[in-house]
Nucleic acid binder design. Structure first.
Length: 177
DNA sequence: ACGATGATGAAC
DNA sequence: TTCATCATCGTA
């Protein structure tokens, strides 16, 4: 079984999509080669009320794709060095996205984009085959017991209520190499 | 514990 | 136009 995830998958509630992304495969096309990496860690940024979300202060040039269609890449630059890979979720007009923090063999969102050669060039592009970066369901079934929920990383500045939300999903089993 | 490194957005 | 901040990481 190998099915490319479409808008329909990403349009659902952000926390549900985040959970469902674990065990899916991020596929990167480089020239003729396609390399697939199982997703092992994600974080949800859910709606304008979410103080840790870029969308919390309203729409800006940077975050505007979060307000648009689901299944689109939201890629932004932080700390003068790293591109962060997110996929837009939820209905149009509702600002939400999921940060892909890790895949099998690569831990950390900055390392991930660096290793796969993902930059802002892909921002606002659809997560489909022709864009060279997409996500596939390869039939892996994930049980709730395999997943750990924790608070999100690097967002303590927003205060305890929102920084402590259990919006980070990660496999308990260590998939690092 | 801290510096690298530059875009972002809010204030002036 | 300035300036503090930042969904990080490598080195120490």
């Amino acid at each position: 079984m190998r099915k490319i995830l479409t808008k329909k998958f990403f349009e659902r509630a952000t926390l549900v999509v985040a959970y469902d992304l674990l065990g899916k495969f991020l596929v990167r096309k480089k020239g003729r080669k396609e390399i697939a990496y199982m997703v092992t860690e994600v974080e949800a940024y859910d709606g304008h009320k979410d103080k840790a979300s870029h969308a919390h202060r309203g729409e800006t040039p940077r975050n505007k794709v979060m307000f648009g269609e689901a299944g689109v890449w939201y890629i932004y630059f932080v700390y003068g060095m790293y591109d962060m890979l997110n996929v837009v979720t939820g209905p149009r007009g509702y600002p939400a996205a999921i940060l892909i923090r890790g895949v099998e063999g690569i831990r950390g969102p900055g390392r991930l984009t660096k290793k796969l050669g993902i930059t802002r060039r892909l921002n606002s592009k659809n997560a489909v085959r022709v864009s060279g970066l997409w996500i596939e369901d390869r039939g892996i079934k994930v049980r709730p017991k395999e997943i750990k929920k924790t608070s999100r990383v690097g967002v303590n500045y927003v205060g305890s209520v929102w920084s402590k939300k259990p919006y980070r999903f990660i496999f308990k089993k260590d998939y690092d190499h």
